[in-house]
Amino acid sequence: MNEIATVRDVVAIVLVLAGAFLCLTAGLGLLRFHDVLTRMHAGTKPQVLGILLIMVAGAIRLQGWSAIWMLLLVAAFQMLTAPVSAHMISRVAYRRRHVRRDLLLVDEIRSGESVDRVYRGDEPADAPPEQPAASLRASRREDQAPSGGSPRAGE
């Protein structure tokens, strides 16, 4: 019985350390990566695997079912909500042209031929465009040109 307890403790400690290490690399990646989309990859990492590992460690160490059920609930919430917020943020990031296009190998949303004249450069996402209506019309025209006008998928 005692040995089993120590094995469980060692497993829990390893899981905790691995999860904490993933959180550290998330901070590092957030600092080192170039644009919002790549930083988003660094951000989803602790949110999914790191917190999952630490939750498993907590479930191993804690006694009493109520805490374990609640940890399970937190893990389920994280796995349900993390993709949604990641998707929403990265979609807005792409639409606001807050992407380092020069670091993209392939961009199949707008593949090459359409000149990016709506927003120039890599403006901060919270800077409003100079002429919102005109730039929106231009971007709609760009959207409709290759495809024959599909409605925007978001709204």
């Binding site: 989309l37 988003m40 990859h41 989803t44 990492k45 999914v48 695997l49 796995m79 993390a82 993709p83 990641a86 998707h87 990265s90 979609r91 792409y94 949303i109 599909s150 998928a153 978001g154």
Partner: peptide, 12 residues
């Protein structure tokens, strides 16, 4: 999206 290394940006 849950798997690190790929994020779904848009969906038609």
């Amino acid at each position: 999206t849950l798997v690190p290394g790929s994020v779904v940006i848009d969906m038609d």
